[in-house]
């Protein structure tokens, strides 16, 4: 990701994109793709992150006229991505189970490392090994900065469950990284 785009330029691009300007939407894509792709990678896995990222941006394009500017575009987009990832995961899980002994597993085993390296790669690998619910909460709270209230609402769990899953995730991460 390059230099961050000043907010007023981004607002202008959001307005233009909502009116159908593809070039403006492409600029928004370039600005935000890294964060959305990271969310998809960490929550669901690198083998489906590309597809999910594309789906998120297509969904965003179709919903742009409903974006009222009450939050930053990046915040709105990220929430849309979280909801999309959570709703698509069941389908992905079914697909992966069909490929259990096929390409899915193979690609995960032989997939080349992404751009991250060193500590970041270790941490990302450790995140992928977390149980699903603990991973969701860990990524959303510790990586993305959501509150327990927001996470509880998104995941349909209580705040107490969100807190206990976060602690579980951190403890498991600590053990993995020791």
């Amino acid at each position: 990701m390059g230099q961050r785009v000043p907010e007023h330029f981004e607002q202008s691009d959001v307005r233009r994109a909502a009116e159908g300007d593809h070039a403006a939407f492409e600029r928004l894509y370039r600005e935000h793709v890294g964060r959305i792709h990271a969310l998809c990678t960490r929550m669901v896995g690198s083998d489906v992150a590309d597809d999910l990222t594309q789906e998120v941006f297509i969904r965003a394009w179709r919903k742009l006229d409903g974006f009222k500017g009450q939050s930053k575009f990046g915040t709105w987009l990220h929430r849309l991505a979280v909801n999309h990832v959570l709703s698509r995961r069941e389908t992905i899980r079914r697909r992966e189970s069909k490929q259990a002994f096929g390409e899915g597993i193979l690609s995960r085993v032989v997939a080349p490392p992404r751009r991250s390296s060193g500590h970041a790669l270790d941490l990302d690998r450790a995140v992928r090994r977390l149980p699903e619910r603990a991973r969701d909460v860990f990524v959303l709270f510790d990586v993305e900065g959501y509150s327990h209230d927001e996470i509880a609402e998104a995941l349909g769990v209580s705040v107490g469950t969100s807190k206990s899953q976060l602690h579980r995730a951190r403890m498991l991460m600590r053990e993995q990284l020791d």
Binding site: G34, H37, R170
Partner: peptide, 18 residues
């Protein structure tokens, strides 16, 4: 763990999805 997680950055796709 918490500090390292907060420092995790974006992950750019390895191919252009646009």
């Amino acid at each position: 763990v918490r500090r390292r997680a907060a420092a995790l950055g974006p992950i750019e796709p390895t191919r252009d999805l646009w």
